[in-house]
Write a protein that binds this DNA or RNA. Structure first.
Lengths: 196, 196
DNA sequence: ATAATAAACGGGGTGCCCCCCCGTTTAGCA
DNA sequence: TGCTAAACGGGGGGGCACCCCGTTTATTAT
């Protein structure tokens, strides 16, 4: 009587413990070997059976989403730093760089994020909308100051940052490529056409 | 004696026939299911054992490279069309669009191309250098006319086209995203800063 | 025409992985 | 301390990449 019928049994202690172990070993494996690493290896490292891993995280993307949300605080502290910048144009530029870095957390991360971008029920989709929302704040400020094209939408910049991070995977050996592509996304390849 | 010791036995007729069958079924499977499709299924469709497929094309990338070189004539005819355009700036723009389309030949193609970009011994690498060379012709012309930034290199634009094609995989449902990102790569996100 | 021979074939094996079933264990609660 | 639902995990099915090796076959020389 005291308490309704809906009162739930407290979740078992090993449930939370296993969940933590899984996330910890996943963090290591994904960092070292990329998002395509073997989930069975993650389970082995965590000391649980593979079925337990799938019970906690039914898909690879669900596991990724949880790992990302645990790293989100890093991105938010970057955000607070960048918000102090007075020039909204360079703030946007630095935010784009921060996003790009964040997407480099795990090798191959841009792929799942891109796929989740349109899938309604992908657990990573909520991460995407979060990133887009944050980008919108910097973009809006820059647009108000005439420092960014008015036709841009936050999702465009999100996809651009994703693409830049994706390209980075190939051009690590060549640091200048990365700089050039960042400049390209900021300024475009076309030089402004003056009347001749 | 007639003919040197190095005279080679003619290659067997079934060798060439199998090779063609493999390429034909690979073309179909890759077009329909993307570059990650099962190679065993390709072999089955071709009516050969999987070992035969691997004997002809030791890696997935080798198979892809051959498929691409068979499609290259399409790209070259696009090139000839674009070369007729007098304005080198819009020629470059159309070339970038043509490249991007070409990379959409198979779903997931940008990935292997990006990976091959730096790998010396990847059979796709020669395709990449070919694309870069072609891009260089249009970029050089545009730069001579002041229609493209002088700091750009052809490889930067190649990577940009690759990235745009990669992003397209997610934004098919939203045609405007693609247009925005093309515009972004042409003009950058920053609006030109006039002196206030 | 036929035998010799080297090239090419392909069934099947290994190892890895995803994903799930289901009998067993265990933590929480009365 | 016993009951019960929640959680576990070994193991199996299915699929794929990749390769081994006994068998077939097209070509060439006789």
């Amino acid at each position: 009587m005291a308490g309704s019928e809906t009162r739930l049994r407290r979740s078992r202690a090993d449930f939370e413990r296993n969940r933590s172990e899984i996330l910890e070993s996943a963090e290591k494996r994904f960092s070292k070997e990329g998002v395509g690493t073997s989930l069975e290896a993650v389970a082995r490292d965590a000391g649980v059976g593979s079925a337990t891993l799938y019970r906690h995280f039914p898909t690879r993307d669900a596991l990724l989403a949880e790992l990302l949300s645990r790293r989100e605080s890093q991105l938010l502290s970057e955000k607070h730093r960048i918000e102090q910048i007075v020039d909204s144009g360079s703030a946007l530029e630095q935010w784009m760089a921060a996003l790009e870095d964040f997407f480099g957390a795990f090798e191959g991360l841009p792929g799942p994020l891109r796929s989740a971008f349109l899938e309604e029920h992908n657990p990573l989709a909520v991460s995407c909308t979060g990133f887009i929302e944050l980008t919108g704040q910097f973009l809006g400020a820059a647009q108000r100051d005439g420092k960014a094209h008015s036709w841009l939408r936050a999702r465009d910049l999100f996809l651009a940052a994703l693409a830049l991070s994706w390209v980075r995977g190939s051009s690590l050996a060549d640091e200048s490529s990365q700089q050039h592509l960042r400049a390209l996304s900021r300024d475009g390849y076309a030089s402004t056409n003056e009347a001749p």
